[in-house]
Design a protein around this nucleic acid. Structure first.
Lengths: 353, 353
DNA sequence: CTGAAAGCGCTTACAG
DNA sequence: CTGAAAGCGCTTACAG
């Protein structure tokens, strides 16, 4: 059994080529041409040896010596791949992956962080964020304290999704749910709806509040009082979607807005089973979208966030911040909202009667 | 604007705690307790300072100094997330992610590698494999030369999927497609089928050959000559699935085996459109599975590989190999095939007439 | 034009 | 019991 071959180093290349180790480094980093310091003959000789030995620089050493390590961190508060959330994360990761490829960076997915209460903690005993040049944060809700603490650092990061925390100083690329929701509600208003139901997720997330703001805005614009025109039920307060639906049903809404796509499907199934025609008896509008491939026949009227674009834009924004920090500058503020599309479906119609 | 805070280092911790930098390192790595070299009082003082300063060791420096960095590389020959392949890769990544979490490792997804002709190259100018302690290789087909070259290295890796290359020395965790396919064909034989059609993928991949072997085995076991009983068409040789189907149709098979799930769906659509009843007129069996959520009503008789388990097992196998190399030992050979399930569907029935 | 040297932040023998 | 020192493999001023 042959002894494991020692790794090739610049020193070995230098010895073979008959130059100094620094010359090898210079050639390797293209500084040879730039400064025209090294004659083409020497350079070519070194390059030949590099090719013969199939040498590649140890990225760890390069990184320690001060070069960036071209590693983009991805931190997900919830496990990224497991089936339930994969529908949600996959398009984001698609965008992140292709943008990372563009900037020739590798992706570091932080999976080592222990999961506590179903969520990962950003800061913990052996925080490894620094392994990457910067980091993209994914998750519906993020811990305000952790964001604050991260901000106190010079570590470059970008959150995906609008963030209020830390006095509005969190860099993010988000989705303009408020505008899209407002427009969607406006359509319902235009059709004649006046009694709205809302099945919402937990109140904490910014995306939830943005949607809510959009609804209230639209109602106010139509001269309606939200307190009277809108009946809400938070899904987490009820054991099942059926219970949440019962809770708002008493106000006999003519259109129900559902924040979570899964809840939306469940409600549609429920109504269908109960013989309630959609949209003839009641309209259903979903304020989000999963990437399932046409699970059901029903073409739901819904919001569709540009998730792939979101991921890609987060990478470029992060790259800019990393470069700024590298130059010793303060990273530029980044707070962008991408436009959210409305998908015209068949579940929104004029109110009954 | 405050100047970006310099990174905290062990030297700073040492200065504050009034000890040497090596003592900090010793405490940090738990060697303090092990060897009982450092008194509890000193250790606690150091730990206090570490907590106060929220210090974390620079993993790049640790790595260069010889410690493992608990980074598991993931190299995909095709982009991992983009929609078309996401159905295929997602369950694998799910398994990899959760197993990585178990062994508290982070995942390094190699996206920086340039994609040439739709595939990534493992070896190229700035190969960064060494950033990770070891690497999992994903892809339907892998370059034999690259595998050979990687094997010549002491770099730990595990391929997902059986590999013939490099004289059978490639470590892998694969799927026993041969056995499962044999069993599936046996079922068809038991039902009375004697004329088989096969829509296969490119011939290069081991998984394709294993399936083919399984078919031939089963036929031989039933005393049938494959040359007569089996008519094949390679999908890539034909412009469309319809053309491939035309090519084998002449032999009037009573059952068609389709390797690719997408092709299988296309064939079913095609037959349905042509008014050919399945399985009354012809049976269709698919030798694989995608993770779409019940796209269509038809419950296809098919093979279902344990992809999540496959990913998880690859991680543990890789971890073992990394540990062995770390100890200076030759990594143990790993070549495992996981059992593949058969999903009983409604598209396999007795032959017509 | 090129080499010797410092330094990145660690780990780990090796001396006291 | 603890520190000074070498070394991991690079990059990059700094001298010749």
């Amino acid at each position: 059994m042959p002894a494991p071959r020692a790794r090739v180093t610049q020193r070995m290349i230098a010895d073979i080529a008959g130059v100094s180790q620094s010359t090898v480094s210079l050639v390797l980093n293209g500084k040879a041409d730039e400064s025209r310091r090294i004659p083409a003959a020497t350079r070519d000789r070194v390059l030949d040896v590099i090719r013969e030995t199939t040498y590649v620089a140890n990225p760890v050493a390069r990184s320690l010596a001060g070069a960036t390590n071209d590693l983009i961190g991805v931190f997900t508060y919830e496990p990224a791949f497991p089936t339930r959330s994969s529908d949600f994360y996959t398009p984001l990761l698609t965008g992140i992956e292709s943008a990372a490829e563009q900037v020739t960076a590798d992706l570091l997915v932080f999976t080592s962080t222990p999961v506590v209460d179903g969520r990962r903690r950003l800061f913990h005993e052996s925080n490894r964020l620094r392994l990457a040049d910067g980091c993209i944060l994914l998750g519906r809700e993020m811990d305000a304290d952790e964001l604050e603490r991260l901000l106190a650092t010079d570590y470059p990061f970008v959150a995906i999704g609008r963030r209020d925390a830390a006095h509005g100083r969190v860099p993010y690329i988000g989705v303009d749910y408020a505008s899209a929701t407002r427009e969607l509600v406006q359509r319902a208003l235009d059709l004649g709806h006046t009694r709205f139901g809302l099945l919402r997720l937990s109140l904490g997330a910014e995306s939830s509040r943005d949607r809510h703001d959009g609804i209230v805005d639209a109602l106010a614009g139509a001269g309606l009082d939200a307190a009277a025109a809108l009946t809400e039920a938070t899904v987490t307060d009820h054991p099942t979607v059926a219970d949440a639906w019962e809770a708002i049903r008493a106000s006999s809404p003519t259109v129900v807005l559902v924040e979570d796509p899964d809840d939306g499907e469940e409600l549609l199934d429920l109504l269908s089973a109960a013989g309630v025609a959609v949209p003839a008896a009641v309209s259903v509008v979903v304020l989000g979208e999963h990437t399932r491939h046409r699970d059901r026949g029903t073409d739901v009227t819904r919001l569709s966030a540009p998730r792939t674009e979101l991921g890609a834009r987060a990478v470029t924004a992060l790259t800019e911040r990393i470069a700024a920090v590298q130059r010793g500058e303060a990273p530029p503020p980044v707070q962008e909202l991408l436009a959210c599309a409305i998908v015209d479906g068949t579940t929104l119609g004029p109110p009954s009667r």
